[in-house]
Simulated scan of single mutants.
Amino acid sequence: MSRYVIVIIVCCWMQGASSQNLPGLGANRVRINEADRSLVFEVEPVDDDIDVKSELIYSWYSANRIHTTQGGYSGKLLNGAYAEFYPNKNIKEQGTFKNGLKNGLWKEWTEGGLLVQSITWKNGLKSGGFSKFGANGLLAQQGKYLKGQLDGYLYDHYGKDSVGVTYYKKGVPTKKPVPFIKKLFAHKSHQRDTVKTAGQ
């Protein structure tokens, strides 16, 4: 066997090792192994008449890589489950794409397995409840997005005995009476001592 043929065989093997459709996991599921992470995701077929929005970020797969582009794509749109892993095999990020856009609940973890954040997306925009956690794994912030903007009450947890409260309307902090706050935290005595609203 000539040296040229051996080089071709080795190159093909390396290509298959870095990005492959895993047997038994479906023809539309792809795995990519990189030095600092590994990815498993789906590229299920999508409709040909997708209405691409210029303000949204699309994720797509081509040439053994995932690419992100605002207002367009080239290649296969990510469509279905997505998971990213640390080198130690712990999960880093998990969620679902729909036609190249994040959709539904997405979660992120530290390399040690602590939850970093949990955010709800709808068609590429943060929309719904979210929670963020500190380095100690305790809840640091929670609130809600509506079409990519903070909307409603944002709670900042400063420690065992204080919570800051800010009311947002379409991304803008707004003064708003919060008479229900004491009731809300009445069963959480460690959170009700310090309650502030925007403008106070």
Score class of each variant (00 low, 15 high):
residue 52 V to T: 08
residue 123 N to V: 09
residue 156 D to E: 05
residue 151 D to K: 02
residue 145 Y to T: 07
residue 119 I to M: 08
residue 197 T to D: 02
residue 175 K to A: 14
residue 136 N to T: 10
residue 93 E to A: 14
residue 28 N to V: 05
residue 117 Q to L: 04
residue 113 G to W: 05
residue 148 G to Y: 06
residue 136 N to Y: 04
residue 199 G to Q: 05
residue 8 I to Q: 14
residue 98 K to P: 09
residue 132 K to I: 06
residue 175 K to F: 13
residue 116 V to Y: 03
residue 115 L to A: 02
residue 64 N to F: 00
residue 176 K to E: 11
residue 167 Y to P: 10
residue 100 G to Y: 04
residue 74 S to M: 09
residue 163 V to P: 00
residue 160 K to M: 01
residue 108 E to A: 09
residue 136 N to H: 08
residue 13 W to V: 14
residue 75 G to V: 13
residue 42 E to M: 11
residue 197 T to E: 01
residue 121 W to M: 12
residue 44 E to F: 07
residue 165 V to G: 00
residue 190 H to I: 02
residue 45 P to K: 09
residue 22 L to P: 05
residue 155 Y to Q: 00
residue 131 S to T: 05
residue 21 N to C: 01
residue 199 G to M: 10
residue 176 K to G: 04
residue 98 K to H: 15
residue 5 V to Q: 15
residue 109 W to Q: 02
residue 64 N to K: 11
residue 31 R to G: 01
residue 72 G to Q: 10
residue 118 S to G: 04
residue 145 Y to N: 05
residue 184 L to Y: 15
residue 174 T to F: 11
residue 59 S to G: 03
residue 89 K to A: 11
residue 186 A to R: 15
residue 21 N to P: 00
residue 138 L to C: 07
residue 26 G to T: 06
residue 157 H to D: 01
residue 63 A to K: 12
residue 99 N to C: 12
residue 98 K to M: 14
residue 173 P to K: 10
residue 9 I to E: 13
residue 49 D to C: 10
residue 141 Q to D: 02
residue 61 Y to N: 01
residue 66 I to E: 03
residue 81 A to H: 11
residue 114 L to S: 12
residue 117 Q to S: 12
residue 195 V to I: 08
residue 35 A to H: 01
residue 104 G to Q: 12
residue 174 T to E: 11
residue 16 G to Y: 02
residue 133 F to W: 10
residue 6 I to Q: 15
residue 60 W to M: 03
residue 186 A to S: 12
residue 27 A to Y: 09
residue 50 I to D: 07
residue 181 I to M: 08
residue 46 V to A: 07
residue 164 G to M: 02
residue 171 G to C: 08
residue 155 Y to K: 00
residue 156 D to A: 04
residue 164 G to E: 03
residue 61 Y to E: 00
residue 122 K to F: 09
residue 170 K to A: 15
residue 122 K to M: 12
residue 141 Q to H: 01
residue 4 Y to S: 13
residue 150 L to E: 04
residue 8 I to A: 14
residue 171 G to V: 08
residue 18 S to F: 02
residue 100 G to E: 10
residue 143 G to S: 03
residue 95 G to S: 14
residue 13 W to C: 14
residue 9 I to H: 11
residue 153 Y to G: 00
residue 133 F to L: 04
residue 27 A to S: 11
residue 166 T to R: 04
residue 127 S to E: 15
residue 84 E to M: 12
residue 185 F to V: 06
residue 58 Y to D: 01
residue 173 P to S: 13
residue 82 Y to M: 09
residue 145 Y to M: 04
residue 41 F to P: 06
residue 71 G to T: 10
residue 43 V to N: 09
residue 51 D to A: 10
residue 27 A to E: 15
residue 120 T to W: 04
residue 118 S to L: 08
residue 170 K to G: 08
residue 139 L to I: 03
residue 50 I to M: 09
residue 36 D to I: 00
residue 48 D to S: 14
residue 99 N to G: 09
residue 110 T to F: 01
residue 189 S to L: 02
residue 46 V to D: 05
residue 162 S to Q: 03
residue 68 T to G: 02
residue 38 S to F: 02
residue 136 N to Q: 09
residue 200 Q to L: 06
residue 104 G to L: 13
residue 164 G to P: 01
